[in-house]
Amino acid sequence: MKILVVGAGATGGYFGARLVQAGRDVTFLVRQGRAGVLRKRGLRIVEADGETVVEPNLVEVEGLTGTYDLILLSVKATALDAAIRDFAPAVRPGTLILPVLNGMGHIEALVERFGEGAVLGGAARVVTTLNDEGDIVRIGGPHLLTYGARSKPAPEGLAAVEEALTGVGFDAVLYDDIVEDMWAKWAFITSIGAVTCLMRGSIGEVAAVPGGVGFAEAVITEAAGIVAAAGHPIPEAALEFMRSTVTTPGSPLTSSLYRDLVAGQQVEVEALFGDLLVVAERVGVPAPLLGLTTGLLRVHQARVTGRE
């Protein structure tokens, strides 16, 4: 199976590198700046127990030729439109697109461009970031990729995708109910984002102050209530995991949203929070904490984009 990874950043680069290590036929579609870093240093993963370096097969947009069987799409929501234009020539009848973006809005854009049957559902759970050298730093925790057909019958080629993603250096799980998992992931990541961005600190720092745990639990209740009212209730075991994650004493965990915020970079405010507020209004669920987070991030986003 020929795999094209679109987005060799902290998430796509991590999963793509593990696929390369497992012997899969992987090419990374990258911009010129990222290509220069990867050609100089290799695709490097830094973990607590050491470093892993792979020499990636790279292609830039102008050099993209031929088509691929699977496209693993991992870009920020703000870069989605440009990414679609970039990888569109690589799509043929039968190509499957596995997006691991945040939120749900990207599905509509992909289906509109490539058709219902071409677009799988997916969710990534991995805590990674890029350091100053452009290396991928895995902070710890799970490295899980869930995926599956969003409707039945499943598209042809899904079995081949499962084979390609099995036995690699991360956990990959084929879900029958991938859409439900995507909604749960949406609630989870907005909750972590709200807690860390509003409080300007890690989960452990928030939990350590009076009222911090109660605040974090209130955020979880709000986000979970929205998705449940929209018809996607989160199972109790998953809810308990979410609560424990955002209230763990001493946890160094932050969200990628928070890290982008403090670094003065663009943030995925609309894909994560703006879209969820639209859902909340539609189902009639109050969302004061998520609304406050949205306003804060919109001000930041306007400031950043105004400089560019």
Rank of each mutant, 00 (worst) to 15 (best):
R34C: 00
A302Q: 09
T146M: 04
D69H: 15
A160K: 14
L239P: 11
I3W: 12
S255R: 03
Q32K: 15
V127R: 09
R307P: 02
R150E: 01
L297F: 09
P235K: 10
I71V: 15
L276T: 03
V304M: 02
S251L: 03
L101A: 06
G204T: 13
T245Q: 10
L144H: 09
A238S: 10
R138G: 14
L261A: 08
A302D: 01
A83N: 08
T65H: 12
G33Q: 13
L261K: 07
P56K: 12
E133P: 00
E60T: 15
E156M: 09
R259G: 07
G157Y: 09
V304F: 09
E205H: 09
D275H: 14
G42S: 02
G134L: 06
M242Q: 11
Q21N: 04
A263N: 12
E268Q: 11
G33S: 10
V246K: 08
G33I: 07
D260W: 14
D86V: 03
G167M: 02
T245A: 13
F87A: 05
P155Q: 10
V37G: 00
A77Y: 13
A287H: 13
A287M: 12
V111H: 03
F188D: 03
G169V: 02
A184W: 14
L290M: 12
G204L: 06
F170Q: 10
G295T: 04
T247R: 12
T11W: 01
R125M: 09
K2M: 03
M242T: 05
E55I: 06
G105K: 14
A22Y: 03
T166C: 02
V304Q: 08
A8C: 06
G211Q: 07
Q265F: 14
M104N: 15
I84S: 01
M199R: 14
L257S: 05
R24L: 03
R18I: 05
A230S: 05
M104A: 11
A124V: 14
E162L: 02
G140F: 12
G16P: 12
D260K: 14
Y14F: 15
G36H: 06
H143N: 08
E308Q: 10
T166E: 07
Q265E: 11
A83P: 02
A90R: 14
A224M: 13
R31G: 15
G63I: 08
D171F: 08
R150C: 07
V206T: 11
A224D: 04
